[in-house]
Design a protein around this nucleic acid. Structure first.
Lengths: 235, 235
DNA sequence: GAGAAATGGATCCTATAGGAAAGTTCGTAT
DNA sequence: ATACGAACTTTCCTATAGGATCCATTTCTC
């Protein structure tokens, strides 16, 4: 039971490089690949997704595809019609988008305030690093927009993590809000203003001011939902 | 590409009744069966769950078991160790239980207030029906306790539903709080006091008083976490 | 010509078989 | 007696085959 013998075991972690050769990558890789396909709308919202077809296209057997689809169905990214196959989840309606931001307004300002209360020097450093990691690219390419979305996602997840509540973090992650928003608005939405607001939120948290952090986050979400996202819905 | 023709889904919701007779029961049945096994601790927390073993025990092939396990892993009820199999999720630590109730205190009082704002005669009737459906059984059997847990779950889900936010409802359901609490405390926890509090919450919502509903829900959760659940942790 | 029934194709669902990796056990050398 | 090494067993992971169901097209009848 107790393996206390010191047998060097230097060959395992000789290099810090992750040497995981291929640990059950397939099902997880399929999961990520399909999620990417959904995000890029290479699979149109509402369209059918054939298990066999996906398996052929990805070059794997249907079994891992089935497993990945089951997980995506659990995350409400695909819908299962029991004897008729899977379909990509439709785009969010305007009511659902409002509901999503109402939920974010419920948990994220709270998370920002708690993060400010619990802030450490390490946490502040991580926050500033994330803010600085994303310099506004002048090119308005698809890839740049996608990278900005990924940064926005990491930023909000990091705040939920710094709030010290795994439940809040999980609840936020399970909304998959960035995926839904990205699917809704193919064109550029996140821009300089968003990055400036991120900086303000980060500084409020880093300075340990819960009230300012909560307000900054609330303002950020309200601006995003009412000024940036909703107008695009009607166009 | 352009799927402009969508003449379907017109006769789907003609009747609100779900007309799904028995569609693809197996994978879903396995999912429910394993969840039940987890809840009753017939599978001990942290113990290994063999795909093949479960398949033999349930009399099905490993494929639907694999699918069910993938969904349960997505719900964080089991953990997957990539080339070593699945394990039942361990019991909640005291910190995790505190975190769970902190999250419930964040969303459920809000949901109670919104439910009170939006209450209709139909909603009030459903609320009262749920409260009245569960008369306190004098017998302290395992089955009776389980029924009380199920009632408590339905009651809180109903309030989240009446709040009109699918996000909040999903977030609540995905905590699987009743399953975790049931696994933690095999002995009786829910009793007469809980049912009385449910009645007070229901009346506050039914009478359309958001402030009273929010306070009643907050009190209910605080009493449950600090007076009923936490003391049992140390014993 | 229009509607309904039957047939063909495609898809999903379940079961079984084979290959690979990890854990375990036993034997042997020090 | 202990530690190391090799073979075995168990388990998971992937692939393929067969049975059942649903959708679409065609054909027959009124």
């Amino acid at each position: 039971m107790g393996r206390a013998q010191d047998t060097e075991s230097a060959s395992v972690s000789e290099f810090g490089i992750e040497m995981l050769p291929r640990r059950s990558a397939l099902a997880d890789e399929v999961h990520e690949a399909v999620k990417e396909l959904l995000m890029d709308q290479r699979i149109a919202p509402g369209s059918r997704m054939s298990i066999d077809g996906l398996a052929r296209e990805l070059g794997v057997s249907p079994t891992p595809v089935r497993e990945a689809l089951a997980r995506l169905e659990s995350a409400e990214l695909v819908v299962k019609e029991p004897l008729r196959g899977y379909r990509a989840a439709p785009l969010l309606t305007r009511e659902q988008l409002d509901d999503l931001y109402r939920f974010r307004l419920l948990i994220e300002p709270w998370a920002a305030a708690r993060a400010a209360e619990r802030i450490t020097s390490d946490g502040a450093a991580r926050l500033r690093a994330e803010v600085d990691s994303c310099d506004m690219p002048d090119e308005n390419s698809y890839a740049a927009y996608k990278e900005l979305t990924a940064h926005d996602d990491r930023f909000h997840v990091l705040i939920a993590e710094l709030a010290g509540s795994a439940q809040v973090r999980s609840a936020f992650e399970r909304t998959h809000c960035h995926l839904h928003i990205f699917r809704l608005y193919f064109d550029r939405v996140i821009g300089t203003k968003t990055l400036e607001e991120h900086g303000a939120i980060a500084e409020s948290i880093a300075s340990g001011d819960p009230g300012a952090a909560e307000l900054a986050m609330r303002t950020h979400l309200e601006v995003a939902s009412q000024q940036r996202l909703r107008p695009l819905y009607d166009s």
